[in-house]
Simulated scan of single mutants.
Amino acid sequence: MSSVDRSTLLDKDKLRKKFDVSHFDLNAIIRGVQLTLVGAHRALQNPEIFTSQHYKQAAVAVAAGLAIRLLIAFPILGIKILLWALSLVLPLDRVSWDDALVDGLTFIEEHLLQAPLFLMSLMRYVTPALDDLFMDSLRWVDQTYAAKHRHDPDPSRLRAMYYPQLRLYRPTDGRTHSSGADESATIFLYRFARKGAISIAVFAASYLPLVGRLVLPAASFWTFKGAVGLGPASVIFGTGLLLPRRYLVIFLQTYFASRSLVRELLEPYFARIKFTKDEKKKWFRSREGLLFGFGIGFYTLLRVPLLGVLIYGIAEASTAYLITKVSDPPPPPSQSQGFAASQTEWRNKQKFLSLSLWNLDALHDKPPPYSEVDPHPVASRQ
């Protein structure tokens, strides 16, 4: 083969890769949404949730939800009171800018800054309740699986349990692998402040003359280019040119918020299984469509007034069920070398997506030895 032919072939492979949407296909997204409901149902069947301890946590969650809603509404309420006071001396009933101001601030808080989701996620760094809920739910998922297959004629073909091994791992911060809660909270606050600043800057730039109309469509193209490929991202860009600014912002922020939600919900897993930054990126990318569906399902439910924090707890419990469908059972900590590298690709994706909704526990494939997945596990983690 000539050098020209090889160059052409390489260019075609690169182009095909850029338009590849296999990791973000519609079937995976739909299955992710289904796991939202199946995981929540499985979590609510856990009798441990109805103990006095969890009743107390549920009551605290509802109270926290009320406090969060009041905290978010307080600035808007203050501005309404100020406008009411001004209306006593100014003819505000003849203008509409006061209503536009209140509506704009509400929109920025709930859609641009994602204040409710931020405050709910912040609870992880205040109390270990969410981590405990994940582990308790993982134990229940194992127990349910064992009970469901107790009459299997060949028990050796069943999967290994997740909870007994995962509880042996010392939890740290899933991003820094440090044990300091202050450092973890600081990084979380920095990431939220950075995202909020970028969101506000892009939103403000969309009001610039001439080029402003292109800002949000361009941002949507750049956001989705790496996730879904050039083809779908181009369609999103074209659609963004036709959508009103408000709906395009909601679309973009919903995508970002659902991704952030899933990453926070998976923190108890990554706090125990140590992935490098590159391994973690590959782990998420190979499961991106399913995780997006799972995240968008719970993000929609989280917007229920007052009950959002309680639903956040159910989402955390459901994530324990999710992790048993997208990863292999962990080995003992003493044998964990190379395990994270072996999980970067979702091996059983096609088999799992082809299962019926009522038979999601039918997959029992044993993971291959780590040496078959990654012949140089130590080198890959450098």
Rank of each mutant, 00 (worst) to 15 (best):
residue 130 L to G: 06
residue 130 L to S: 13
residue 131 D to E: 15
residue 132 D to T: 10
residue 132 D to R: 15
residue 133 L to G: 08
residue 133 L to E: 09
residue 133 L to F: 13
residue 136 D to M: 11
residue 136 D to N: 12
residue 137 S to I: 05
residue 138 L to M: 03
residue 140 W to L: 00
residue 141 V to R: 13
residue 142 D to P: 07
residue 142 D to Y: 08
residue 142 D to F: 05
residue 144 T to C: 02
residue 145 Y to P: 02
residue 146 A to C: 07
residue 151 H to R: 05
residue 151 H to I: 02
residue 156 S to T: 11
residue 157 R to P: 01
residue 159 R to N: 09
residue 161 M to L: 13
residue 161 M to Y: 05
residue 162 Y to V: 00
residue 163 Y to F: 08
residue 164 P to F: 01
residue 165 Q to N: 15
residue 167 R to T: 11
residue 167 R to M: 09
residue 167 R to K: 14
residue 168 L to R: 13
residue 169 Y to Q: 08
residue 172 T to Q: 14
residue 174 G to K: 00
residue 176 T to C: 00
residue 177 H to Q: 08
residue 177 H to Y: 12
residue 180 G to L: 03
residue 182 D to Y: 08
residue 184 S to N: 02
residue 186 T to I: 07
residue 188 F to D: 05
residue 192 F to P: 00
residue 192 F to L: 09
residue 193 A to D: 05
residue 194 R to Q: 06
residue 195 K to R: 14
residue 196 G to T: 05
residue 196 G to V: 03
residue 200 I to N: 00
residue 202 V to D: 03
residue 208 L to K: 02
residue 208 L to I: 01
residue 209 P to E: 06
residue 212 G to T: 02
residue 212 G to K: 05
residue 216 L to I: 06
residue 220 S to Y: 09
residue 224 F to L: 14
residue 224 F to H: 06
residue 226 G to D: 11
residue 226 G to L: 06
residue 227 A to M: 10
residue 230 L to T: 14
residue 230 L to K: 07
residue 234 S to I: 08
residue 235 V to E: 10
residue 238 G to F: 15
residue 238 G to D: 05
residue 241 L to Y: 10
residue 242 L to Q: 15
residue 243 L to V: 07
residue 243 L to A: 10
residue 244 P to Q: 09
residue 244 P to R: 14
residue 249 V to R: 01
residue 250 I to N: 04
